[in-house]
């Protein structure tokens, strides 16, 4: 189960609304490499993990990604609060506004709604950990791209925090992959599914 803590993992305090930026940043909520997909990917994969460390890691990183999703939504909310019609008309945000007003809905920057195809849960620890390593790098690249587009320090600060978390998660998933391969018969590393074919364990 989960319990809600009434705080953000890292503060989001954006003084100036900016609907154009909101439309870019929302991609880390509902886009292909966003935090919604990250949390569902890890929390779904944990059921087929044969090793305790990896069950723990997927549970804890999956939970942290929920906190990241909340930070991204807080950024989108603060960037679109108290807008007038004039501030929306003629901006790229107008298209989003027509569909969702200033409600927060999981879409990519390119406006495609969130899709389950963005994640994989293959029931194979080796396959899934490779997916996770790639996912963390894709999220990091997306944060790099966002950081290139932003100069408001109130927005940059939480984006930099979130970017750094992708690096730390990548490191931990790398360790999980090493722990996993250490437990396998080295003749079989990549030709069996250790979550299903139990004989390939040492």
């Amino acid at each position: 189960m989960w319990q809600y803590e009434k705080k953000l993992q890292y503060p989001v305090k954006i003084a100036n609304p900016n609907p154009k930026l909101a439309q870019l940043i929302i991609t880390q909520y509902g886009g292909p490499d966003g935090e919604l997909g990250a949390s569902l990917r890890y929390l779904s994969q944990r059921y087929s993990m044969p090793y305790a460390e990896v069950k723990g890691l997927l549970t804890d990183i999956g939970t942290e990604e929920l906190a990241h999703l909340e930070m991204i939504c807080a950024m989108v909310h603060q960037l679109t609060r108290n807008l007038s019609e004039e501030e929306i008309k003629g901006t790229p945000f107008a298209n989003y506004f027509v569909d969702h007003t200033t409600g927060v809905y999981p879409v990519a920057a390119s406006s495609v709604p969130w899709r389950a195809e963005y994640i994989a849960s293959k029931g194979d620890i080796i396959t899934d950990l490779h997916e996770d390593l790639a996912a963390e790098q894709k999220a990091r690249t997306t944060y790099d791209n966002l950081i290139r587009m932003v100069d408001d320090p109130d927005v940059l600060d939480p984006l930099r925090f979130l970017r750094q978390r992708e690096l730390n998660h990548y490191q931990r998933f790398g360790e999980a992959l090493r722990l996993t391969s250490d437990r396998l018969n080295e003749k079989n590393f990549y030709s069996f599914n250790p979550s299903f074919d139990k004989h390939c364990n040492k």
Binding site: K7, Q9, Y10, P11, E53, G56, L57, D60, I61, E64, N168, H169, R172, E175, A176, L179
Partner: peptide, 19 residues
């Protein structure tokens, strides 16, 4: 306190792979 909350989350992830 927030900083300690965060350090505890980070240590938790490290301990998952270095128990």
């Amino acid at each position: 306190i927030y900083a300690y909350d965060f350090a505890i989350v980070e240590m938790n992830l490290y301990l998952d792979t270095h128990p």
